[in-house]
């Protein structure tokens, strides 16, 4: 069995985003720029894998849900 030690170069970008984007705590406050609590995981990777058209549509859709600026 492979045991990944804490060597970040061994971690796949998918695993990283799975945690850092999908799982981390969403901390709101005034004047925060933050990735909203939606399915951003794999966004970039999906974009890379999909055909241009599909990727474009998905980016648009995902982005609409992604970033929200709280009203100040």
């Amino acid at each position: 069995m492979e045991t990944a030690k804490w060597d970040t170069s061994d971690l796949t970008i998918v695993d990283l985003l799975d945690r850092a984007l999908d799982k981390g705590v969403l901390l709101w406050g005034e004047l925060v720029i933050s990735v909203a609590d939606v399915d951003l995981v794999y966004l970039g990777l999906k974009a890379m894998l999909c055909s241009i058209d599909t990727a474009e549509q998905m980016r648009e859709k995902a982005w609409q849900q992604l970033i929200e600026t709280p009203s100040v």
């Binding site: 981390g24 705590v25 901390l27 990735v35």
Partner: peptide, 12 residues
Amino acid sequence: LLPLKLCTVYTN
């Protein structure tokens, strides 16, 4: 630690 989401940025 309680890790925050990637790209949590405060302006002040």
